[in-house]
């Protein structure tokens, strides 16, 4: 997968997420940092040092692989101690360090097992412990939670976040799950088709997407067509309007017909048809729900209509 014109500046101690659909270049970007891929043009600097031509084994960067890549022939303890073994540490020193590392990821006492005897979540922790033992400056995580079930994934999200804060390390996290990126990262880079579409804090990305692609990929959004926006604000560009920022009432607002209602547990998703466009609205379940076919008025605070003047047109 090729990436083009990617210019990222990741701060020390930052939890940085690279978010994008599969094939958007986020993993390639990670592999560039790890040293598994060579840039044909441009370069990667790690803590100010240009790392062109530096092989992966001489970079102070460690990776948690998507499939964990635990060594099947080694015990859990030897897996974790691998980095120290290569560094030439004494057996007693490295066993002790590996034991501590396993404690850190709450796997104390699992050292003698083989990776094949562990569950997915446990393997993930072993991979994490193994990557942390060399005390890297940057930890790269390639969709580390992708193979876990929902419950476990949420637990691990929290744990990873805590661990990152405790160790003060720079984490670079690749994911295609927008909610994961939003909830964990300090800053998010949204990738699409080998380019970075937007880099910002999760909140800014959510509130102020700069393109229809970002607006659609990060959370659900209504893309208000340029003609309607032009009539509303005088500027001819598409705008993003988050469903939860829209109110439904019977007083002031734009006339609309209720087309569909979906109950979603924490909220109700109401689809309304305006003359100009179709909008999705998120209503709290405590709010009175309209019925399909009702004539309603929809309204929103003007500042919540986010204009995307730089929209590159990627849909």
């Amino acid at each position: 997968m090729a990436i083009d014109q990617v210019n990222l500046d990741i701060q020390p101690g930052e939890f940085f997420a690279m978010l994008g659909p599969s094939g958007s270049g986020k993993t390639t970007c990670l592999r560039l940092i790890a040293g598994f891929e060579k840039p044909t043009f441009g370069s990667v600097h790690i803590f100010g040092e240009r790392s062109d031509g530096v092989p992966p084994y001489r970079r102070n960067v460690n990776t948690v692989f998507q499939d964990y890549a635990l060594f099947p022939h080694l015990s859990v303890l030897d897996n974790v101690a691998y980095g120290l073994m290569i560094a030439g540490e004494e057996k007693s020193t490295r066993s002790k360090a590996a034991d501590e590392m396993l404690e850190l990821v709450s796997l104390g006492g699992f050292g003698h097992r083989k990776p094949s005897q562990l569950s997915g979540g446990q393997r993930q922790r072993v991979a994490l412990a193994r990557a942390l033992i060399n005390k890297p400056k940057v930890l790269l995580l390639d969709e580390p939670l992708g193979a876990l079930d929902l419950k476990l994934r949420e637990e691990m999200q929290e744990e990873l976040k805590l661990l990152q804060r405790r160790l003060g390390l720079t984490f670079v996290f690749v994911t295609h799950d927008q909610s994961e990126a939003l909830s964990m990262a300090d800053r998010v880079a949204v990738f699409n088709e080998g380019r970075v579409m937007q880099v910002d804090t999760p909140e800014s990305i959510y509130k102020y997407p700069n393109s229809t692609f970002v607006a659609n990929f990060v959370g659900a959004s209504n893309i208000v067509p340029a003609e309607f926006v032009s009539a509303l604000t005088g500027k001819a560009c598409p705008a993003s309007l988050r469903p939860e920022f829209i109110q439904i009432g019977y007083g002031d607002g734009y006339s609309a017909t209720v087309a569909d209602i979906n109950f979603m547990g924490a909220a109700r998703r109401v689809t309304v048809d305006l003359e100009e466009c179709r909008l999705r609205v998120l209503l709290g379940v405590d709010q009175e729900a309209p019925r399909i076919g009702d004539q309603v008025k929809v309204s929103w605070a003007p500042e919540n209509l986010h204009l995307m003047e730089q929209n590159s047109g990627n849909r």
């Binding site: 001489r58 060594f71 990557a131």
Partner: peptide, 20 residues
């Protein structure tokens, strides 16, 4: 990825061959 993991953890080609 086993080979990449080994390289990532500091092992050069020879060490990777020998240990993984």
């Amino acid at each position: 990825s086993l080979i990449e993991a080994s390289m990532d953890l500091g092992a050069n080609s020879f060490q990777t061959f020998r240990h993984v």
